[in-house]
C-alpha cells in the first residue's frame, strides 16, 4: 500500500472515504453496462460463435479497462480504487458477461437467423 501520513495499514476506516468509493463503483458499473451492450451487439452482428464470442468479450473487457485506466484515472488508479489497477480489471466481470450473452444472442438471432 502507498505510504501516507494517516493510515497505519490496519486501521483503514480513516484512510478511505466510503462515499467516494461507492461513487466510483457506480461509475465503473455504468461503463461496464455500456460495454456489455455494445460489444454484445457487435459480437452478434459479426456472427461469432463458441469460444470466439467469449474471446471477443475478454478482448473488449481489457480494452475498456485500459481506456478507463487511461482516461478516467490518468494512470493513477491507487488514488481512486482501493485495490488499484486490479480492481479496474477484475470487478464485475461475471455480471457484464451475463449481459453480454444476452445482447450477443439477441443480435445474432436478429441478424443471422431471421431471413
Amino acid at each position: 500500500m502507498s505510504a501516507d501520513a494517516q493510515g497505519s495499514g490496519t486501521e483503514d476506516v480513516h484512510k478511505y472515504v466510503p462515499m467516494y468509493m461507492a461513487h466510483n463503483a457506480k461509475t465503473m458499473q455504468f461503463a461496464r453496462a455500456g460495454l456489455a451492450a455494445i460489444s454484445g451487439s457487435a459480437a452478434g452482428i459479426l456472427g461469432l460463435k463458441n469460444l470466439y464470442g467469449f474471446a471477443f468479450y475478454a478482448v473488449n473487457w481489457v480494452l475498456i479497462s485500459f481506456l478507463l485506466l487511461a482516461i478516467k484515472t490518468q494512470f493513477k488508479p491507487h488514488l481512486f480504487f482501493k485495490g488499484g489497477a486490479k480492481d479496474i480489471f477484475t470487478d464485475g466481470f461475471i455480471g457484464g458477461l451475463l449481459s453480454y450473452i444476452l445482447f450477443h444472442t439477441f443480435l445474432y438471432g436478429l441478424v443471422h437467423l431471421y431471413q
Binding site: 501520513a5 461513487h23 460489444s39 473488449n60
Partner: peptide, 27 residues
C-alpha cells in the same frame, strides 16, 4: 463494426462522469 465498437466504447467511457479521489487525506 469494429471501428464503431471502439468509437462507442470511448464515448461510453467519456460519458460516465468523473471519478472521485477516495483518499481521506485529500478530503
Amino acid at each position: 463494426c469494429l471501428i464503431s465498437v471502439v468509437v462507442s466504447l470511448v464515448g461510453v467511457v467519456l460519458c460516465a462522469g468523473d471519478l472521485k479521489n477516495i483518499l481521506m487525506e485529500n478530503e
